[in-house]
Computed example of a mutant assay.
Amino acid sequence: MHRSIRMMFISFVFPALCLGQAPTTAVVTKTDPIAYLNRAIDIMQTQALRRNLVDWPKIRATALTMAAHAENPAGTYDAIRFALASLGDHHSSLHLTPALEALEAQEKAKHPSANPVAISHESFSPYVGRYEPEGHLERRGDRSFGYVVVTRCFPENDRQFVAFESKLQKILAELDQSRPAGWIVDLRGNVGGNMWPMLTGIGPLLGEGDNLGEFTDSAHVSTWRYRDGVAAELDGGKASPYPAVEGAPYHISGTPNVAVLIDRNTGSSGDAIAIAFRGRPNTRFFGEHTQRDSTANQTFELSDGATMWLTVSVQADRTGKQYIDGLSPDEEFPAATRVMPPSSDPVVQAALDWLSRSTEQSMTER
């Protein structure tokens, strides 16, 4: 069994895009399928974040019944998916190589009466289709406000990692030349990926610090840092830095007002960025409750090359508050059914209302 470093990938919205560490070729073995299934459940029972909230005898018995006709490990995959879903963390998942997918299809063809795992098909946010960071200025009266869209990020290498974070900082730098009175950070539809280039990219607006958020479980805490163009995870005093932004990092002076937009598909790493803004001064949230998977995963490789992405820790903000069930906005709105221009988007307009009032109040207090 191989245990990877912590992963921050969402796996069930766009599985083809997820960058796990499963091998590229399958090693099909003659492993006893029942022993294989029991081993997978053993890993869940000892490592999962919610391991103490689950009726393991019941889950194991149900999973073994589901796999009663299994002739090889591929016949147990649905039973493993059932056990992972029973954890209730909305984030754990099973990942197969193409060869194992083909083998599973063969097994299901032999036993068509087997009960598949029920999969929920929720209505996706219309903002899921955004792929690249973007920015522009929004005007309200005689004031302008910076508007930045932070999209999901699935870098395949360091070059793509740096390109994403550098593009975000470049957007901030260009908009900041207009001296905006406040900012909107739009995380709607950000289903996740790798959180660290997102954190670095938006870092100048988020602000520097050694504890912008946390990964935490019952026995361990590591924190998120952004400083001078570099994001890092701090664990026991040791920093694990990620690739630095290209060129000189940008710095935004002061702590400007920031409106953060979230929705039902702000998840995983997207949730992490929202949580990093929670507790920041002069910040308010607008939209919908997030996707309810504000957790972090580790990968566990099984004997045939299948890989479990298992939720082992929960995200917390800089105050230590945990968000195992996602994040609620300060001002909630009905679920959007289509992408709207900012001028007719009620979430954007509410954010601009708040930014305008906050700016006016700040000027009055001076």
Results as ranks from 00 to 15, higher is better:
Tyr127Ser: 07
Ala99Asp: 12
Gly20Pro: 00
Thr25Cys: 13
Asn282Gly: 09
Gly135Trp: 11
Pro241Leu: 10
Gly213Gln: 11
Cys18Ile: 02
Gln47Lys: 06
Ser294Asp: 15
Ser269Arg: 01
Leu96Lys: 02
Ala350Phe: 14
Gly192Cys: 08
Thr359Ala: 13
Thr295His: 11
Ser356Met: 15
Thr311Val: 10
Pro346His: 03
Arg284Trp: 03
Asp235Trp: 01
Asp325Leu: 06
Leu199Lys: 00
Asn257Lys: 11
Ser93Val: 03
Leu64Asn: 04
Ile273Thr: 04
Pro197Gly: 01
Leu175Val: 03
Asn194Ile: 07
Gly129Cys: 12
Glu71Gly: 14
His111Leu: 14
Leu199Val: 08
Leu175Trp: 01
Leu206Cys: 04
Thr266Glu: 05
Gly270Ile: 01
Leu103Lys: 12
Ala219Tyr: 15
His220Glu: 13
Gly236Leu: 01
Leu206Asp: 06
Ala67Met: 11
Ala118Leu: 08
Phe161His: 15
Arg50Gly: 03
Pro155Leu: 02
Phe9Asp: 05
Ala16Ile: 06
Gly229Val: 00
Met363Tyr: 13
Val28Ile: 13
Ser222Asp: 14
Ala68Phe: 14
Val185Lys: 00
Val221Leu: 09
Trp224Leu: 10
Leu49Met: 08
Ser269Val: 06
Val347Arg: 08
Glu214Gln: 15
Ala114Trp: 12
Ala40Cys: 01
Thr307Pro: 05
Val149Glu: 10
Pro281Tyr: 00
Tyr323Pro: 05
Tyr147Ser: 01
Gly305Cys: 11
Arg225Phe: 12
Pro243Gly: 06
Ile202Gly: 00
Ala118Ser: 07
Thr290Met: 09
Phe333Asn: 11
Asp142Pro: 11
Ala274Gln: 09
Thr25Ile: 10
Ala48Tyr: 00
Phe14Met: 07
Met7Ile: 08
Lys167Glu: 07
Ser222Cys: 11
Ala61Asp: 14
Ala63Asn: 01
Phe286Val: 05
Leu49Asn: 03
Asp304Ile: 07
Leu205Gln: 02
Ile252Gly: 00
Gly229Gln: 00
Ser358Leu: 11
Ile273Val: 09
Asp142Ile: 10
Leu352His: 09
Ser269Gly: 10
Arg179Pro: 02
Ser240Tyr: 10
His2Met: 10
Arg227Ser: 02
Ala173Arg: 05
Val185Cys: 00
Ile5Leu: 15
Ser268Gln: 08
Ala114Cys: 14
Arg140Tyr: 15
Arg179His: 07
Pro73Ala: 10
Thr97Cys: 07
Lys170His: 06
Thr62Trp: 09
Glu132Gly: 05
Leu261Asn: 05
Asp317Gln: 09
Pro133Thr: 08
Ala74Leu: 08
Ile275Gly: 00
Tyr250Met: 06
Thr295Pro: 08
